Computed example of a mutant assay.
Amino acid sequence: MRVQVEKLQARRGARTVVHGVSFDVASGSVLGLLGPNGSGKSSLLRAIAGIDAPAAGDVRFDGVSAHDLTRRQVAQRVAVMMQEHSEEFEIPVLELVLLGRIPHGSGFGRDSAADVAIALDALERVGAQHLASRAFSALSGGERQRVLFARALTQDTPVLVLDEPTNHLDIAHQLELLDLVRASGRTVLVALHDLNLAATHCDAVGVLAAGELVAFGSPDSILTPDLIRTVFAVESTAITHPATAQRHLLFDALARTPEHRASTRTVHP
C-alpha cells in the first residue's frame, strides 16, 4: 500500500513540532525516519498513524485520504508500535497480542480459532512463542518489544508504523527484528537511531531536524559525513564494508563546530 504524506503538521499542546512534512513511500518499501532526540519523529509517526490528529496536511493510503476513513478503517490499514506503553499489563501475552485482531472482528464473542492461530504464528515469527502464557508486566524490555511487534503483525495490515522497535534489544535481536520487517512485504515507516541499521535495512531514509524534513532519498545518497555533522553534530567517516560492499559509517567524535540545526537545508539525492 502506497503512503503519501502531504504538508503534514503536528502539535504538542500549543507548540508546532512537525512543520509541513511531505514524502511518498512506495508500496512494500521500508522508510527509515532518522533524526536527533526531539526532532519530531514520534510526533510525525503518531500523526501518520492517526493516533493524534494532524494540525494540518493529509495522509493518503493508496490515494484515499485519512480524513475520509473511520478509526476502524485506519486500523485495518495501519498497525502501530509506539515507544510508550503501559508496563503494568497483567494480561497474558497471548491475550495482548490478540488485541491486534480487534479491527477485523465483528465485536461479538471470543477470538476465533483463526485469530488465535494468527497470533501464535506472529509470536513464533518473533521468537516469543514461549512467552504466550506469561504476564506482559513480567517481561524484560526486550521481550516486551518482541511481543508488541507480534501484536502489530497480528493486526495484519498492509502498513506498519514502528517507533524505535529495536529499543531494549541486543544486537542479534535487533538484526532479527529488522530482517522480519524487511521480509514482511508490507509498507513500513520506522523510526531508528542507529544510522547503520537504517542504511542496511531501509530502501529510503528521511532525516528530520527541528521538526522539518531536511533530507530524503536512498541511504547512500543521504547519509553523508556532511549531513551527519550538520544534523547530529558528529564527525564521521564513510567506508565500504569489505564483505558486502555496503556503505558503513564510523562515528569519530563530536563535531568541533556544530552548525545550528535550524539552518539545515533540504538535501535531495
Rank of each mutant, 00 (worst) to 15 (best):
V59N: 04
V97S: 01
P103G: 09
D115N: 11
R101S: 02
I48C: 07
G100T: 06
F61N: 03
R71D: 11
A75C: 05
A49V: 07
R71E: 14
D62T: 01
V97T: 02
I102W: 06
H104P: 03
A79Y: 01
I48S: 04
D52L: 00
A113M: 09
G100F: 13
R72V: 13
G35P: 00
G100S: 01
A56C: 08
T70F: 00
G35L: 01
A79L: 06
A49S: 15
P103I: 05
N37C: 14
D52F: 05
S86P: 04
P54L: 08
D111V: 02
F61R: 12
I51Y: 15
I91N: 06
V59C: 06
G109M: 01
V80G: 02
D115R: 00
P54H: 08
P36I: 05
R77E: 03
E87C: 08
H67M: 07
Q73C: 13
A55C: 06
E87W: 12
E90H: 11
A47C: 04
V93Y: 03
V74K: 06
D68I: 07
A114T: 09
P92T: 05
H85N: 13
Q73Y: 09
G109H: 00
L99A: 10
R110F: 11
V80H: 02
D115L: 12
G57V: 06
L44P: 02
A75G: 12
A119K: 07
G105W: 07
I48K: 00
E90I: 06
R71W: 07
G105S: 12
H67G: 10
F61T: 12
R110M: 07
A117F: 03
G100A: 07
A113Q: 13
V116M: 15
L120V: 11
E90R: 12
F61H: 13
F108Y: 15
K41E: 05
N37M: 04
L120M: 14
E95Q: 12
L96H: 03
G35V: 02
L120E: 15
V78K: 03
K41F: 13
A53D: 06
S43I: 04
D62W: 08
D62K: 11
T70I: 08
I118V: 10
I91C: 09
L120W: 11
N37E: 09
A79V: 09
M82S: 14
S112F: 14
V93R: 02
I91M: 14
H85S: 15
S43N: 06
S86K: 05
G50Y: 02
S106V: 07
H67N: 13
Q73K: 08
E87P: 00
V74T: 08
Q73V: 09
D62N: 13
L45F: 02
G107D: 02
S112P: 12
L98H: 01
M81L: 15
R71M: 09
A49G: 15
E95T: 10
L69F: 04
E88L: 00
A117E: 13
H85K: 10
A117Q: 11
S65M: 08
D111F: 03
D52W: 01
A49C: 13
L99Y: 06
I91Q: 13
F108Q: 12
E95M: 00
V64I: 11
S86G: 12
T70S: 15
